[in-house]
Design a protein around this nucleic acid. Structure first.
Length: 297
DNA sequence: GGTAGACCTGGACGC
DNA sequence: GCGTCCAGGTCTACC
């Protein structure tokens, strides 16, 4: 460890809660220990330097151990990336205020749930989201791992560990390579087109992290990406801190079906309707709901 | 504006 | 062994 940065977090904060927020932590180049108390990730900086970041909870915020000495601008970049990934500055108190009176959500505040793990760039999250569609979770893990191991930049400390590939690198590939090497199947042209759009500047994904435009317009932009449909757009909006839509997939339908419809099949309208009363917190209420199906009732 | 059918891939299942 | 199905959907072509 050459550099240690400490970053504050808005209270309440729990690193394990963020790392458990969904499966993202299991996708390369991120990983965690068994207890989900420690995040490790290989990250490429704008300077070209590739580092390992190890994040642990400390003093109500986090301590970030970096494998190399950093310039001040590199330090700032790491701070920004980790802050975004973990949502350190997210204020969820309005959500907690409405969640207190709902027994199925009463756990969120005491357990500091509500932050959802993000990738450092929206580009990476869009790619990963596209790679969750119409496949099994094992398939998603495999496809992401292929992209990283084939097209990521190696970390000098252990060259078998690599960064998530940049848009500019992926943009140079062709459809056949993504199919035959990374085994992305029909998703290959989606990922390629996305990378090329970002690389050319036609698609300003990273600007969406901070835009204040209405959620509906943001959603339309996301839907404009080939390969991103209703589910993916809702998923990405949640990562952007907009909770007005529910990412309805087969899993969501199963949960809602067992929660309120006796296990009978439900459509997406039923899923949406079930959380309508949560307004702008709809997506979070869905995400952190204490499902009876999972509790084994 | 709503809905069949096709779509890569690999693992699970039936026979 | 081999065919079929389908998994944390989306696009296109039609109504």
């Amino acid at each position: 460890v050459a550099t240690t940065l400490t970053l504050p977090a808005l209270h309440p904060f729990s690193l394990p809660a963020v790392l458990r927020s969904h499966g993202w932590i299991r996708l390369a180049p991120s990983s965690a220990d068994e207890e989900r108390s420690r995040l490790s990730r290989i990250e490429g900086l704008r300077s070209g330097q590739v580092v390992e970041l190890v994040v642990e909870e400390a003093n109500g915020g986090v301590a970030v151990e970096v494998s190399a000495d950093l310039t001040s601008s590199e330090e700032k970049e790491v701070e920004q990336k980790v802050t975004w990934m973990l949502g350190l500055n997210q204020d969820l108190s309005p959500f907690y205020a409405v969640a207190r009176d709902e027994s199925k959500l009463a756990h969120v505040e005491p357990q500091a749930q509500g932050r959802i793990l993000r990738s450092p760039t929206l580009f990476e999250d869009v790619v990963k989201t596209i790679l969750t569609t119409n496949t099994s979770w094992a398939g998603t893990i495999r496809m992401v791992e292929s992209l990283v191991s084939q097209f990521g930049d190696p970390w000098p400390g252990d060259r078998s560990r690599r960064t998530f590939p940049t848009a500019s690198h992926l943009a140079t590939l062709n459809d056949q390579t993504l199919r035959s090497v990374a085994r992305l199947g029909y998703r290959s042209p989606f990922v390629l087109e996305l990378a090329q759009g970002v690389e050319s500047g036609d698609l300003d994904l990273e600007g969406l992290q901070t835009t204040d435009e209405p959620t509906e317009e943001l959603r339309e932009r996301l839907l404009g990406i080939n390969g991103v449909g209703a589910y993916s757009a809702a998923n990405l909006l949640i990562m952007l801190g907009r909770y007005d839509f529910i990412p309805v997939d087969s899993w969501a339908r199963k949960l809602v079906s067992h929660e309120w419809h006796n296990g009978e099949p439900v459509r997406s309208v039923e899923v949406e309707a079930a959380f309508e009363r949560w307004g702008r917190w709809k997506g979070l209420a869905y995400w952190f709901w204490e499902w009876s199906y999972l509790a084994g009732d």
